[in-house]
């Protein structure tokens, strides 16, 4: 509820996607982020390999 009040503060905020409590929590949830860490690394390695 706290972050979505931002919508009211500024009309230009209206085209945004503001994370809910769950999404915010997942962003700093260590277990989930470890999984994402591996996934992002794989994605990055692919791009690095494509670039050389």
């Amino acid at each position: 509820m706290s972050v979505e009040e931002n919508f009211a503060k500024n009309s230009e905020f209206n085209l945004s996607m503001v994370p809910s409590k769950f999404a915010s929590f997942m962003r700093t949830c260590v277990i989930w982020q470890f999984i994402r860490f591996v996934a992002i690394n794989l994605k990055m390695i692919i791009v690095v390999r494509k670039s050389h």
């Binding site: 919508f7 209206n14 085209l15 945004s16 996607m17």
Partner: peptide
């Protein structure tokens, strides 16, 4: 006046 709704863990304007 549109609405802001929960979708995929985000709150976003129905406009999007």
């Amino acid at each position: 006046d549109g609405m802001q709704l929960g979708i995929m863990g985000y709150v976003t304007s129905v406009r999007i």
